[in-house]
Design a protein around this nucleic acid. Structure first.
Lengths: 201, 201
DNA sequence: AATTCTCCCGAACGAACGTTCGGACGGGAC
DNA sequence: GTCCCGTCCGAACGTTCGTTCGGGAGAATT
């Protein structure tokens, strides 16, 4: 069970926690060594560099959240309901995986070169997914880019203040944010009424 | 003009730009020396440590944005209009001072000890200002904390994507965000009344 | 039995870091 | 002229950084 793969997973999981708590640059390889149980040199058997650890965290996390969103959207037809589904998934996933999502959100500009591009590509795909959902719904009088990033902002900011063990459950957090955004985003009374009706029962 | 005070201001301004671009930890005192024109040792005549430079940026920036918000709110009576005023001021200020606001938002957890507490106090005061505005308006069915941080999130996320020289003006950005938030937050619009009625009945 | 391969580490490498030391320069005070 | 003080710097300090080197233990392969 402590096979080669298991150790790499363990290293990544450990690094995720420490990067989330201390930040990427403030964390040394010696910190990771101490916390993972591997020696300083031993970590380099699993990983090419410190950068690569950050890359692995971000690459996997984006893949996971993207796949989860697509799975959640599967079968949902109504445009507004698809937006709501995306928001709910993103927020609940975020609240359930705060460490890696914090590393994803906060250590956004630390990678360089090929790894940076790989992660950027994943990010672009994920952002495009939401932008597509907003555009599919059509008529909002808000600037589409502003709406997309305003929504991502209110969701991704979670890592700065939300405590999963506090009084607000991930589900109510997700519901509040979905309601806040959709009520503001959807333009007509009719759609808003339909939305509440379909939501309430 | 290159008096003692002027040099300190210049050092802080230079550091703000570099911290915003590279991040606090990725910036060395030698970087600041090179960019400011002062020697490595010379900077320590104006500043006790690298930490203190970050502190000065954040402390001053919070003071500035707080004072600006209070000035903007002066004389505005209507509750909803006060919220809109706060949003507009925050967003326009953010868009007009991206570097320092990015350093304020992104390098939030880098200070320690007394400086950390000083900045935290300023932050608490500023957050309390908005929370107060939201509470003053009363009846929203959203969790007050969630509403506050959702709003700060969508506003502070600006530094990750907004380009002041792009097609979106700071004013339209501020208007869109104010509209997006207020429509979702305020329960008492005509359409929203219908909405709540159909939901409750 | 000999060889190769995977896994892993103690010790060290050179570079870069934040900070400090001792002193230089110049202008006002005595 | 001498002293002092604010301003500023070259050079160095001790530390920590990410990474590498050379090799050992043990299983697998030949």
């Amino acid at each position: 069970m402590v096979s080669s793969d298991g150790r790499l997973e363990h290293l990544i999981a450990t690094a995720t926690g420490i990067f989330a708590k201390q930040g990427y640059h403030a964390t040394s390889m010696r910190d990771l060594s101490r916390a993972s149980g591997l020696s300083l040199a031993g970590m380099y058997h699993y990983v090419r560099s410190k950068d690569e650890i950050l890359f692995l965290i971000q690459d996997r996390c984006f893949a996971e959240v993207q796949a989860g969103a697509e799975a959640a959207l599967d079968g949902v037809q109504d445009g507004a309901e698809r937006i709501r589904t995306f928001i709910r998934h993103h927020v609940v996933f975020f609240a359930g995986h705060m460490d890696k999502m914090k590393v994803l959100s906060h250590e956004d500009e630390e990678l360089t070169g090929t790894m940076r591009e790989r992660v950027r590509e994943r990010k672009r795909a994920y952002v495009d997914l939401l932008t597509g959902l907003l555009q599919d719904h059509g008529a909002s009088d808000l600037n589409p880019g502003v709406a997309t990033y305003a929504l991502f902002g209110m969701m991704n900011w979670i890592y700065t203040w939300y405590r999963p063990d506090g009084p607000v459950t991930p589900e109510s957090l997700a519901d509040d944010m979905a309601r806040l955004f959709l009520t503001g985003f959807l333009p007509s009374t009719r759609t808003a009424t339909d939305l509440v009706a379909s939501h309430g029962g």
